[in-house]
Design a protein around this nucleic acid. Structure first.
Lengths: 160, 160
DNA sequence: TGACGTCCCATAAAATCCCATGATAACCCA
DNA sequence: TGGGTTATCATGGGATTTTATGGGACGTCA
């Protein structure tokens, strides 16, 4: 593969616009990561509102499956199981892009993220997030600030 | 002997120019280091703005993966994880050179480094940096000054 | 029937491919 | 050691492909 495509994690931020029909292109790079992570018979990606931030989380099928794994360790029918299942699944929204790689966001997600006419796709490694552009900028600045304090546990082997 | 090509770290300083299409050649020596450090399925290099200097950091795939390793030790969904992921990934920009070894820098990186028509590639061992030539010179001078006062810690064995 | 999503085609801009060139540096052989 | 021959490199540019975006037509499911 060429160009941005040869990556297996979501990196960088990209800004695209809604068209008149409410469609947005998923950045090409992200599309190819999604394809690489796709699971036969599952939708290409799963959206859900972030529970801590005004943005939409986008999960590739495989990553979402992993996310849900802790469920298996809870006894079925327990309250914990139900709670977790509800938290994970109830507001998840599986989705496949059209042939041009565009998606249409359901209203509840657009509202949750406060989207208007443009969206920022923010790569976060395993997943990516969809933000209102202004909020995205703010978020990154904040994250930079905070992670400056969260000094990394020193790497063994002198990092090299 | 093969000259610089046989080295696995980024050494030296090279200055190249943007062409009319906004492309710059990565110095040949750096290219071969990048190839040596490449990871199957990942882009050849990852750029990000330096958070401490007006320059662009260029990471080979493997080194970047190491940089991001601490993430794996944080539980998904923790605030630390989110902050760190955003800080590391959101402004990263993966890319692959064209067949001639040239790259096109996105605007936000060109602006961050204040690039105009030429760029200086500065080898820093594990990574290299991309500078506006004047700023690079200044930077090197400062670094020389400062490192005069610094004593290197004794080396333990072990190359990366 | 009508709203909405999908299929298909269209397009401008941008990125990439592919070929070309002058300059320099590496090489070879006498 | 000299001097010509090659290979490599930085750079240039036309042709092609990809990408983001726009929009008409069709299906489907209430």
């Amino acid at each position: 593969m060429k160009g941005l495509s040869a990556v297996s994690v979501f990196l960088g931020t990209h800004q695209n616009r809604f068209d008149a029909k409410g469609r947005v292109s998923i950045p090409a790079g992200f599309r190819s990561v999604l394809r690489a992570q796709a699971t036969e018979g599952e939708s290409l990606l799963i959206l859900r509102p972030s529970h801590t931030q005004p943005c939409i989380e986008a999960w590739p099928a495989t990553a979402f499956a992993r996310l849900a794994q802790p469920l298996d360790q809870l006894s079925m029918f327990s309250d914990e199981h139900d709670d977790l299942a509800a938290a994970l699944y109830a507001d998840a929204y599986p989705l496949d892009p059209d042939r041009e790689g565009r998606i249409i966001l359901p209203d509840f997600l657009r509202e949750h993220a406060g989207l208007s006419d443009s969206v920022t796709f923010m790569g976060l490694g395993r997943i990516f997030q969809i933000w209102e552009p202004a909020a995205a900028q703010q978020r990154v600045a904040e994250a930079r600030q905070r992670s400056r304090r969260v000094t990394l546990p020193a790497q063994k082997g002198g990092e090299g």
